[in-house]
Design a protein around this nucleic acid. Sequence first.
DNA 1: GGAATCCCTATGGGTTTACTCGGGATTGGT
DNA 2: ACCAATCCCGAGTAAACCCATAGGGATTCC
Lengths: 139, 139
Amino acid sequence: MRISTRGKYGVRAMLELAMGYGQGPIPLKVIAERQQISEHYLEQLMGTLRRAGLVNSVRGAQGGYELAFPPGEIKIGQIIRVLEGPIAPVECVEDGVDPACERFEACATRLLWERLRDSMTEVLDSTTLADLCEDAASL
Amino acid sequence: MRISTRGKYGVRAMLELAMGYGQGPIPLKVIAERQQISEHYLEQLMGTLRRAGLVNSVRGAQGGYELAFPPGEIKIGQIIRVLEGPIAPVECVEDGVDPACERFEACATRLLWERLRDSMTEVLDSTTLADLCEDAASL
DNA sequence: GGAATCCCTATGGGTTTACTCGGGATTGGT
DNA sequence: ACCAATCCCGAGTAAACCCATAGGGATTCC
């Protein structure tokens, strides 16, 4: 029941961008240094986040990345979904999937997985980058 | 954010045992057939569950597996922990681990992961096999 | 004794993870 | 015009993990 480094690094990088929001783009190198993440690897994650529309990139010298929206409008769940895929403990309770489930007992476990999915979604979608910035400030 | 087949199969197998609780041991073959799980693979999972004390095994002809406790006393969280490891989205919020975390921003994300862990734990530890049996009965 | 069981270790193919590498495209500063 | 700082992209890779499969050994009921 772990998220991978993609989700972990992604959230950390996005928090970094959130803390510098409104002050121009932040270069990858700086994010990677501050968060101690392999630069080349983080680059791939940022590419994914950019294609998903969560960050904008500015190419060339003095370029870098910045959030596509204010921190208060970006939910952690969005980041996770982009980098880790659907938030669902098992495939058959993914959003939008409605498989004809054969085993009737399986449905009992399915209710369980749905409850788990919902509680995970609740936490991840009720927290924004702005919330994490506040948390960071009060530490 | 997926559990593996170990957790899935494990819960399904345990539910099968719960539904036959008090009626003698159920052979692996039957569980595997009813739940459509590879027999040999399930055997390994049952071995793990047995060594963890969640099921008892009866060897020899007419043998099989049975729950070590009544269904109402076995939480899904116990099964998951045995088969999947600690319930924690990231390593640093595992129970009993208190790492000196270097990055102060990391602590902001750590609060998030703790909230996620807690909400997952809440669901999994508040549901017992008896609850799943009820769910199954009312379908 | 034999069939039905559980028990154990080893192995293997496929996928995923977490990177690394090398080069190309774009842009600001001088 | 040039150069350095950036982002962009695709390939490659070693290790780990997942999901089994294989084959035999030990135990117990009938």
